[in-house]
Amino acid sequence: MDAPEYSITTRGLNLWYGQFQALVDVSLDIPARRITALIGPSGCGKTTLLRCFNRINERLGYVTTRGEIHVLGRNIYAPDVSLLELRKAVGMVFQRPNPLPLSVYENVVFGLRLHHRRGELPRARLDAAVEQALREVGLWNDLKDRLDTPATRLQLEQQQKLCIARLLPLKPQVILMDEPCSALDVNGTRAIEELLFALREHYTLVVVTHNMAQARRASDECIFMLLGRVIEHRRTEDLFLNPRRPETAEYIEGRYG
């Protein structure tokens, strides 16, 4: 294996919602072009941690963050960091598929339209971006004749794939996913998992999941969290086969969840 290259590193990350501390001293190194799963019982802070990486937590006025987060080698809290550039480089997929109330086509080019002036986006460039993004997530054949349908009319699985596809034209390096399969059925889940493997080649994926089997199947590394702390972070098979910490063992055996 080649030398580890980290896409995201955190040091001493603490986060408070008002008075309530949701993350305690989180220090992590998340490797590039791997799938890293975030697991842990409900309320342990998985979503909160994920939402730190693109600073979307800051929407809420009452959030305080301390500590360091480096994404792609840059401190994202440095004053000269552009939030827009950060979010271009770090895409996010949400728990419930949330395509915008626009056509399939417009959903895919939405990011491009945000970051480029109208003159820089000839139709041909948009068309090419749509085709490439939809091909990459395996929707092109299904949707190429229906690019004008409202995205909210698609099946949930297609919606979620579309939500991944709309990140791709911005050429992100990291994709954050918060329980991307929790709204989907078995087939949808399998389809998304296969997609994760395909995307791993080019992107760093951080995937929150509630589903232990999924973490085991579909990740290279696994981070187990409990009450806002990282308890254990190792290669997935090691973590599941011989967990070092008793809490991890208890969790993967299903004693709390």
């Binding site: 929407r59 979010r87 949400f94 109330p101 939405f110 709309r166």
Partner: peptide, 20 residues
Amino acid sequence: SYREAALALGATRWQTVYRV
């Protein structure tokens, strides 16, 4: 969720307002 979708793609608040 629409606001978050737009913001996470790097939209400014004003872009979120008029585009979404």
